[in-house]
């Protein structure tokens, strides 16, 4: 929030504001060593556990030491198994996300921009939202079979609701004052949507998509639990049934990395759309 406050203070010297801007940007980018503090705790715990197991203080059968987890991950990567499973999971999330997000954007936009549609759709959707999504699983299996369709459907349902709510809410909260600017210049409904509503809702739409993607990863695990022969979720179930905690932890780490990478890609892809925003985006 330093931007507007600082430029206000400089209002009498426009040149000074221009000079101050790059300095501010540098300050924002400057590296803060305290970020490294966050690594301290997990690394210390990992090292302690590693030491405890290697000195024979603990058995480490149910809670494998970090070295064994890394070895398992490495072995899975070497045989190519990891990539098959990761790719399968990613593909399911992607298809489910695209379907769920598309439906969420379309219905959210309709419900946000038209009162009639909102009164028609919203109560039903809110009622459906109250159902825990996992409860759909038996029905989806009956309807769509045990293969991909039911899994993708479950993920799409999980993605749909946060996106729908986010988009509808964003449209409803567009500043009336900016809409009036559009009225003054006599924009048609379509022009108003394209030139004012769409850009105004973009920042919130990005956040809605991100939380949708997060839920997509949550639901892919549930979907893969209900019977899959491939996917990171399958690795989890397999590890449990075969008594291989190192494989479970390896799969969990793979999930974490995959989720983070997907989220970062989404943020990077949408960044040019919202770079005008007057906020510190790093905090999001």
């Amino acid at each position: 929030m330093t931007g507007p406050a600082t430029s206000q203070a400089w209002s009498s010297h426009e040149g000074a504001a221009a000079l101050a801007a790059p300095a501010l940007a540098e300050k924002r980018r400057a590296f803060d060593g305290r970020i490294l503090l966050g690594f301290l705790l997990p690394i210390a715990v990992a090292l302690l556990w590693e030491a405890a197991v290697s000195f024979g203080l603990a058995e480490g059968r149910l809670v494998p030491p970090p070295s064994r987890i890394v070895a398992t991950l490495w072995a899975l990567a070497q045989t190519g198994e990891l990539w098959t499973h990761a790719w399968m999971t990613l593909w399911r999330v992607l298809v489910g996300f695209v379907i769920g997000a598309a439906a969420g954007i379309v219905l959210g936009a309709l419900s946000g921009s038209s009162k009639t549609v909102r009164h028609l759709l919203d109560p039903t959707l809110q009622a459906l939202r109250a159902i825990p999504s996992i409860a759909w699983v038996p029905l989806f299996i009956l309807w769509l079979g045990i293969f991909e369709a039911s899994k993708v459907a479950l993920i799409a349902v999980g993605v749909f609701f946060p996106v729908y709510l986010g988009i509808a809410g964003a449209i409803l909260s567009v500043d009336r004052k900016l809409v009036e600017v559009g009225h003054v210049f006599r924009l048609s409904r379509l022009q108003l949507a394209r030139r004012i509503l769409l850009p105004a809702v973009l920042p919130e739409a990005v956040i809605a998509l991100r939380s949708g993607l997060g839920l997509g990863f949550m639901f892919v695990v549930a979907a893969e639990f209900m019977g899959a022969s491939e996917g990171l979720g399958y690795l989890l179930v397999d590890g449990q049934q075969m008594g291989k905690p190192d494989q479970i932890l390896a799969a969990i780490i793979a999930f974490a990395l995959l989720g983070k990478i997907a989220d970062s890609l989404l943020v990077a892809a949408t960044k040019p759309l919202v770079r005008w925003q007057d906020t510190v985006r790093e905090r999001l």
Binding site: G3, S7, Q8, W10, S11, E14, A18, W276, D278
Partner: peptide, 17 residues
């Protein structure tokens, strides 16, 4: 008097500008 600010975002301007 804002010719040199044509390419900036509104957030970079003061209230008077």
């Amino acid at each position: 008097g804002l010719a040199e600010h044509a390419r900036r975002w509104p957030r970079d301007l003061s209230g008077g500008q």
